[in-house]
């Protein structure tokens, strides 16, 4: 099957700044693909390259089987820009009519399709208001509606929940799931890890303009584990040949006793053993690593110098 997106060593340099180093990406038709990275990692640059809004310095790629930026392919792509702005002097309905016309939707199909996406984005009762009076969240919903017009084969969403409250975020998750059910591939560009973790089939983590990890979410998160908050634990319990060693590697992490990897079925046995050793158990956390842990590890490992600033602290991009 033709991939929805495929890039080979896609590169973009602005003056001395390398915005995107060598991007290799493949998004299959019908999948929700999470494109993660700290601010300035090159996510938005990659999206703009895919849509022909900027031209690559080197490398190549295809969108829906056509060269990137191709006009015909753009007719089958829906896009919510990071900077979502629509004509303030048009109503929401008129903005969608404009986009339906630009996208080349059959004139007869437009009214019903516009009503469908308005309802989907929760804008049905604000459709006749000018967008200039919309809150940022409403404008972002309008952008989502525009991106979903005409059931595009590929939907590219650049930070689709940046202006939304938790209710709105929930709505967006439902909208993305529905788009997938209707057969669209979705490229979800985000640094909100919880969102990606709940939605995406596969993810790629980009840092300094390169993909530093990619794959199915399950593979990236690694095996399940358990963490116990315990007190009065005998020192010998965590020894390499101690009573817990039979379950797997044991470690103390910030006052938590962690056994990883550990099959979820064996959690009660671990708890029973720890209690049997005379320790007091205050909490049990059947934790796998969160996407955030994985992400932070990857980003910190890939940084120019390991620091404690967190993901945003590595600057905008790397100069070579």
């Amino acid at each position: 099957m033709t991939p929805a997106i495929e890039t080979h060593a896609l590169r973009k340099v602005y003056g001395p700044t390398v915005a995107l180093d060598a991007l290799d990406l493949r998004v299959e038709p019908g999948e929700v693909f999470g494109f993660l990275g700290p601010n300035g990692a090159g996510k938005t640059t990659a999206v703009k390259l895919l849509l022909g809004l900027t031209r690559p310095t080197a490398g190549e790629g295809t969108v829906l089987g056509r060269p990137i930026g191709d006009r015909e392919a753009r007719g089958r792509v829906g896009y919510l820009p990071e900077l979502f702005r629509y004509q303030a002097w048009l109503t929401a309905h008129e903005v969608l009519r404009l986009h339906a016309a630009l996208a080349g939707l059959a004139p007869g199909a437009r009214p019903a399709e516009i009503e469908r996406v308005l309802a989907l984005a929760g804008l049905a009762d604000r459709a006749d208001e000018r967008t200039g009076g919309f809150s940022k969240g409403m404008q972002q919903r309008l952008g989502l509606a525009a991106a979903l017009l005409g059931d595009p084969a590929l939907v590219i969403l650049d930070e689709p929940t940046s202006a939304l409250d938790p209710v709105g975020r929930g709505d967006v998750r439902a909208i993305i799931r529905e788009a997938r059910e209707r057969g669209s591939a979705v490229l979800l560009n985000s640094h909100l890890l919880g969102e990606v973790e709940r939605l995406c089939d596969r993810v790629a983590v980009v840092h300094h303009g390169r993909v530093v990890a990619s794959g199915a979410l399950g593979d990236l998160l690694g095996e399940p584990a358990v963490r116990l908050r315990v007190t009065d634990l005998p020192a010998a319990a965590t020894a390499e040949d101690g009573p817990l060693a039979a379950f797997g590697p044991v470690a103390l992490e910030d006052g938590w006793l962690a056994v990883r990897p550990l099959d979820a079925d064996r959690i009660p046995d671990v708890v029973a053993t720890v209690v049997g050793l005379g320790a007091r158990v205050h909490a049990v956390d059947p934790a796998r690593r969160s996407l955030e842990d994985v992400f932070l590890d990857l980003v910190r490992a890939g940084g120019p110098q390991p620091d404690e600033d967190g993901p945003g602290g590595h600057g905008e991009s790397r100069a070579r």
């Binding site: 703009k48 849509l51 022909g52 809004l53 006009r71 015909e72 753009r74 007719g75 792509v77 896009y79 919510l80 820009p81 900077l83 979502f84 702005r85 629509y86 004509q87 986009h99 630009l102 996208a103 080349g104 952008g143 525009a146």
Partner: peptide
């Protein structure tokens, strides 16, 4: 400047 052009030029508009 406002970014309105991004959504429009992502359509099949030259």
């Amino acid at each position: 400047e406002t970014g309105t052009v991004h959504a429009m030029l992502a359509r099949p508009l030259r």
